[in-house]
Simulated scan of single mutants.
Amino acid sequence: MRDAREAPMRLDAAAFQASRRLVDTPFGRIAYVERGAGPAALFLHGFPLNGFQWRGALERLSQHWRCLAPDFMGLGYTEAPQQQDLSPQAQATMLAAFLDALSIPAVDLIANDSGGTIAQLFAVQHPARVRTMLLTNCDVHENSPPPQMRNSIAAARAGTYDQKMARHLADRTYARSPGGIGGSAYVDPANFTDEAIDYYFTPLVASPLRRSQLNGYLAAFEPNPLLAIEPALRRSTVPTRMVWGTADPLFPVIWAEWLDRTLPKSRGIRRVEGGKLFWPEELPEVIAEEARTLWGVRRS
Rank of each mutant, 00 (worst) to 15 (best):
48 P>V: 13
135 L>D: 06
75 L>Q: 02
86 L>M: 10
69 A>Y: 03
111 A>R: 01
103 S>R: 14
56 G>Q: 11
88 P>R: 01
77 Y>E: 07
117 T>K: 08
20 R>E: 11
131 R>L: 07
91 Q>A: 09
108 D>L: 08
24 D>G: 13
118 I>V: 14
63 Q>N: 14
7 A>F: 13
90 A>C: 10
131 R>Y: 07
10 R>N: 12
66 R>Q: 01
84 Q>D: 06
81 P>T: 11
61 L>A: 05
23 V>N: 07
29 R>V: 08
16 F>S: 03
94 M>H: 06
98 F>Q: 00
36 G>W: 06
53 Q>K: 02
34 E>G: 07
82 Q>S: 14
126 H>M: 02
14 A>Y: 12
41 A>E: 08
35 R>I: 01
83 Q>A: 15
115 G>Y: 00
69 A>V: 04
68 L>T: 03
112 N>R: 00
8 P>N: 14
134 L>Q: 02
47 F>I: 11
93 T>H: 14
121 L>S: 07
46 G>T: 06
7 A>C: 13
92 A>F: 01
96 A>D: 11
44 L>V: 01
8 P>I: 11
10 R>I: 11
133 M>H: 13
118 I>H: 02
12 D>Y: 11
53 Q>T: 15
122 F>T: 02
5 R>W: 15
45 H>E: 09
31 A>W: 00
46 G>F: 12
13 A>I: 10
86 L>K: 06
124 V>L: 00
77 Y>H: 13
110 I>N: 04
67 C>A: 07
22 L>M: 12
92 A>W: 06
128 A>V: 07
33 V>K: 07
112 N>F: 01
35 R>V: 00
134 L>H: 02
108 D>C: 05
108 D>N: 10
19 S>K: 15
98 F>H: 02
79 E>Y: 08
43 F>R: 09
61 L>N: 05
97 A>N: 00
48 P>C: 03
88 P>K: 06
15 A>W: 10
115 G>E: 03
70 P>N: 01
102 L>S: 04
40 A>H: 03
65 W>E: 09
24 D>K: 14
28 G>I: 08
91 Q>G: 01
3 D>Y: 15
107 V>T: 02
10 R>A: 13
126 H>Y: 13
65 W>H: 12
16 F>P: 04
121 L>W: 11
